[in-house]
Write a protein that binds this DNA or RNA. Structure first.
Length: 245
DNA sequence: TCTCATGTTTAGGT
DNA sequence: GACCTAAACATGAG
């Protein structure tokens, strides 16, 4: 569920229902937020920013974050109790095991859309600027940093570094400028490949590095190590992924 | 049955 | 404050 492209799929599915401008009639779920705040409120828009799914209202924004295990169902229910159910006249949206928050501001005041790798407003130059402001940061951390690449996650990290032949333990400053730019553009490229493959249910089949045992370029074993500040799984080939001096 | 993982926040230590 | 770690949350695949 979690990475940015999956949230785009959710947004597109909900857009099919044409709920923009519709009013929420009932609210259920075990969330701790004030559910009454949502009743009789008119949804103005559904949006996504990175891994955040946003339900927008004139005066406030409802944010759903699926963390690692969250899920949703549209006009269907699970046996397990929902974290949040939004019931409209004809449709219902059910969210499970997710983080729910209300911000008392419209989404445009909260979010910088140019930081979202999936957004039409994405600006690679902004990401580049943020990277250069953190020269000592490991690239494996940078690709998980939501302030730089909102929507990128561990799968995208591993696949992008493999595609661009970059060793995960490079610091930002060690990468040649051209490589750094390539890392940024490949992040968005891969995210859109991820989106298409996920829609076809063929995402896993297309993984070249993530969870893989052997490098498909060199035909030698991948390294699997828990790297960076967040100690997330990294799969990499020390032969074709370069560690720059 | 058990381990582990597409994630983030918070509390606590140094 | 910077920087680190562990814990908490919670679900399903293998």
């Amino acid at each position: 569920m979690p990475e940015g492209p999956s949230i785009v799929i959710l947004k597109e599915a909900i857009d099919q229902l044409n709920l923009e401008g519709k009013v929420i009639r009932h609210v259920e779920g075990n969330t701790k937020i004030d559910k009454d705040r949502l009743i009789n409120q008119k949804v103005t828009d559904f949006r996504s920013w990175g891994k955040h799914f946003l339900i927008c209202f004139d005066e406030f924004t409802l944010r759903i974050h699926f963390l690692l295990f969250g899920s949703y169902l549209i006009n269907e229910q699970k046996k397990t109790p929902p974290r949040l159910s939004l019931i409209f006249d004809k449709d219902e949206l059910n969210f499970y095991a997710c983080s729910v928050q209300i911000f008392e501001e419209p989404a445009d005041k909260i979010y910088d859309w140019s930081g979202d790798i999936m957004s039409d407003s994405w600006k690679s130059a902004n990401a580049l600027k943020k990277l250069k402001a953190n020269p000592g940061m490991l690239v494996c951390d940078a690709l998980l940093d939501q302030n730089i690449f909102a929507g990128s996650g561990n799968i995208i990290k591993n696949e992008v570094l493999f595609r661009a032949r970059i060793h995960p333990l490079n610091t930002v400053v060690k990468l040649p400028d051209k490589k750094l730019k390539e890392m940024v553009t490949e992040t968005r490229n891969y995210a859109f490949d991820f989106l298409e493959w996920k829609k076809e249910f063929t995402l896993k089949k297309h993984w070249l590095a993530h969870t893989k045992k052997t490098c498909p370029r060199c035909n030698i074993p991948f390294h699997k190590e828990y790297l960076g500040k967040t100690k997330r799984r990294s799969y990499f080939c020390t032969n074709c992924q370069v560690l720059y001096e």
